[in-house]
Amino acid sequence: MSDDDMPQLSSATLAALQEFYAEQAAEEEKVKAALLDPKTKDQNVFQADWQLSQFWYSEETASALASEAIRVTENRGKIALISCPTLYPKLKSLSPGSLVTLLEYDKRFAVYDGFVYYDYKDPLNLPNEFERSFDVVIADPPFLSEECLSRVSETVKFMAKDKIILCTGAVMQQLAKQLLNLKVMHFQPKHNCNLANEFRCFANYDIDKYITNKT
């Protein structure tokens, strides 16, 4: 096929495509600027995408979970976040020196230094150095299903060296016990929107001793 036979974009289509790319670039610059602004560094500057089952934690819940991760690691351990991007800016705000890795499917969050692309359907597609190297792992599976929690649990078991915190629907209590030997806590994570399903926190140690009354 010669160059003359190649399909050509109309001027209107080309203009629309250029406008789309320009808007994307402008949005990325806006996000980067917000992340560098001390006034907004502890806020989540992204809009939740419901198609990806994203629901952001309330300010109180984000602060409580981030503070607990910092307490457990004493500001120098390694923290892994699986599908809970709300916590990344909060952690970096409260403890800038903390070593935080965010495993996340949504590539908007690649602007965070600790971002690692993650698809729960391929749970062990991770760097070898992640194996049993994180002092605390906090996971929030994107979908309320046995299949999703089972696969995310594979990731958690691969990465966790010690403490595990899981935030998911209350109906997953038996499966959380079966897969990760986690117990339900009194502490209840809250979101910026009201979810139809009751949401609970599960852990392999007593986090209620530290954060029950902070939400």
Rank of each mutant, 00 (worst) to 15 (best):
E60Q: 15
M172Y: 05
S95C: 14
A139G: 03
L87F: 06
S10Q: 02
F46A: 04
Y205P: 01
K209I: 09
C148H: 01
Y117W: 14
V45D: 10
P189L: 11
A196S: 14
L179R: 12
V111M: 05
K90D: 05
P142V: 00
D49I: 13
Y57F: 15
M185A: 09
M1G: 15
E74F: 06
E146M: 12
L102R: 08
L124A: 09
A12G: 00
F20P: 04
E59L: 12
Q173I: 03
L36I: 00
W56C: 09
D206N: 10
N181Q: 11
K107C: 12
L52C: 10
E28G: 10
N75P: 03
Y57N: 09
L195Y: 02
D135C: 06
E59Q: 14
S150K: 13
S145D: 04
Y21M: 13
Q24E: 15
K32G: 01
I165S: 01
A62V: 05
P7N: 05
D135A: 08
L81V: 04
A110M: 10
Q43C: 15
E147P: 05
K107V: 12
L179Q: 13
L35M: 11
C148E: 02
V100M: 10
N192V: 15
F55Y: 15
C193Q: 12
K209C: 08
A110Y: 08
K90I: 07
A34L: 14
D119N: 15
H186R: 15
L14Q: 12
N125K: 15
S83D: 04
D49P: 08
L124Y: 09
L102F: 11
A110P: 09
S63E: 15
Y120W: 05
V111T: 07
V136N: 02
G114H: 06
K107P: 06
I82A: 04
T212M: 09
L36V: 02
D5W: 02
S95W: 04
V100A: 09
F55L: 10
E19Y: 04
